[in-house]
Every structure is written in structure tokens, then in C-alpha cells.
């Protein structure tokens, strides 16, 4: 693989996804409204009920809004990862996926480019969300805004790879909507996005373990720690391993020799 060709291809795919995203302004606002509603309404309403005691990485008592901010960043990445996979199913149905897959580059690299393009779009949304949250008195350390970038990229890659993996097994767009409901909501609610895991443990031991084993929890914790200038080795390791596993399965799924793709593109 020629490095210059690879870079041009990456730039092309990222530009295309960004242009499509900017052309669909409704999608941009919809993606932002979701976490903002949670921040402005849900968090305000539950502030007094769901008090959060001192838990790492926080050094002191914090407002509930501050606690769920990393979870809402995770929400942006999760929805975006699934949205970009949805667009792959759509592209496959509409035919534009064929154009990508017959490009003279290794298929794993083309899929990685698609993944990175999705993450680039999610990053833009995440920083706009953080900027709005700042006016809502969410003030992480200034340097945290920079340190959270690699954490957002890693978590975004993991969630995008998960979506990519799911898209390789799904035949039609209608089926993917079902998969999203079975994946997004359980992943989001059974995680540390809205409440710390120790609080879940008070209610149910098995639910605690579900949350603990949920890769999304580790994505959020990676973001939470990075935003407050700390690093969670455990979360980083889980996120990296899950990304590699999800991406590998997706690459196999999109391989015409081994995967299920060949039977998915309608034959005539």
C-alpha cells in the first residue's frame, strides 16, 4: 500500500463524511439536542435525588451535571458510531459502498478510514457540546479539554468499530434499527454514564457486573479521568482490546472470501 495513496484516501473519506454531515444540518442539531436535553432537564431534575459522593477522579463533591457530562460525551460517541454504521448499511443498499469496496486499497484500511471519518464528526459534536456545557457551569480543568481528545478518539473508535461489526451482519436498514435499540439503550443505561457503578451495586449485584463488563463504561471512565487530568489504565486497556476485537470481526465480515457481505449485497 502506497503511503501517499493511503493518506489521500483517508482525507477523501473524512472530507466526504464531514461534507455530508454539514449538508445535513438537521443531523448536527439533532445530535447536539439529545445530550443537551439530558444535561439541562434530566440532570437538573435529578440533581437532588442522585447525589454523587467523592469518587475518583473527583477530589470533592460535585454537582450531578458535572458527573454526567462525560457520560453525555459517551452518548454522543455512541449515537455517532451507530449513525455512521447506519450510513454504511444505507450506502450498501444505495450502492455507494460498492464504490468504496472496489477501490484499490486493502479492505481493512478502507473500513478504518470510514471509522476515523465517523470519529472526526463525533469529535466536532463533542467539543461543541463541551463549549455549551461550559455556560452551564461545567468547568473541567482547561488542560482537560486537550487531554480528553485522545480519550474521545479511542472511545469513538471502539464504538464505531462496534457499529461497523454490527453493520457487517445486518442485511437491511430496517433490521439495523432494531439492532440499534437492542444495543444503544442497554449499553447506555447499564453503564456508569448516569450513575457511578457503586450506586448500581447497592441496588443489584448482577447489574453492577453487567455495568462493569460493559465496554461503554470503560469508554466513559477513560473520558472522565482524562477530562480531570488523570489516566485510567484499566479503562484504556479494555477500550483498546475491544476496538481491536470489534474491528477484526468487522473486517472478516466485510471480506468476500470469509465474511457474510457477499451474501448481503443482493445478487441478480
Amino acid at each position: 500500500m502506497n503511503a501517499q495513496h493511503a493518506l489521500r484516501c483517508l482525507y477523501g473519506i473524512v472530507s466526504r463524511e464531514s461534507l455530508r454531515f454539514l449538508n445535513q444540518r438537521g443531523r448536527f442539531f439533532a445530535a447536539l439536542v439529545r445530550p443537551l436535553v439530558w444535561l439541562f432537564i434530566f440532570a437538573a431534575g435529578f440533581r437532588s435525588i442522585l447525589g454523587v459522593s467523592i469518587v475518583p477522579p473527583y477530589q470533592t463533591y460535585i454537582l450531578y451535571e458535572e458527573y454526567i457530562t462525560p457520560g453525555l460525551l459517551g452518548m454522543i460517541l455512541l449515537f455517532n458510531g451507530m449513525q455512521s454504521s447506519l450510513s454504511m448499511v444505507y450506502d450498501r443498499e444505495m450502492g455507494s459502498m460498492r464504490l468504496l469496496l472496489v477501490s484499490p486499497l486493502p479492505r481493512w484500511y478502507l473500513l478504518l478510514c470510514k471509522l476515523l471519518a465517523g470519529v472526526a464528526v463525533a469529535l466536532l459534536q463533542s467539543y461543541v457540546f463541551l463549549a455549551i456545557a461550559w455556560f452551564w457551569d461545567i468547568h473541567p480543568p482547561v488542560f482537560g479539554y486537550l487531554l480528553v481528545l485522545p480519550a474521545l478518539v479511542l472511545s469513538g473508535l471502539m464504538l464505531g468499530a462496534l457499529g461497523l461489526m454490527l453493520s457487517s451482519f445486518v442485511k437491511q436498514l430496517e433490521n439495523f434499527a432494531g439492532v440499534m435499540n437492542f444495543v444503544i439503550f442497554p449499553m447506555f443505561f447499564a453503564s456508569s454514564a448516569l450513575y457511578p457503578l457503586w450506586q448500581i451495586r447497592d441496588a443489584s449485584e448482577w447489574l453492577y457486573w453487567v455495568g462493569y463488563l460493559n465496554p461503554f463504561t470503560h469508554g466513559i471512565e477513560l473520558i472522565r479521568f482524562a477530562l480531570y487530568l488523570q489516566f485510567s489504565w484499566q479503562s484504556a486497556a479494555v477500550v483498546v482490546v475491544c476496538t481491536l476485537v470489534f474491528l477484526s470481526v468487522a473486517v472478516v465480515g466485510y471480506d468476500p472470501l470469509r465474511g457474510s457481505l457477499a451474501r448481503k449485497i443482493d445478487a441478480r
Binding site: C9, G12, I13, R16, L99, S103, P104, L105
Partner: peptide, 14 residues
């Protein structure tokens, strides 16, 4: 134009 540019990038054309 954007479609044509995108294809050139996929093909690695300078």
C-alpha cells in the same frame, strides 16, 4: 465536483 474529487482521492490521484 465533490463526487469526482472523492473518487480521485480513493484512487490516490494527486
Amino acid at each position: 465536483l465533490q463526487n469526482l474529487r472523492y473518487f480521485c482521492q480513493l484512487q490516490g490521484i494527486a
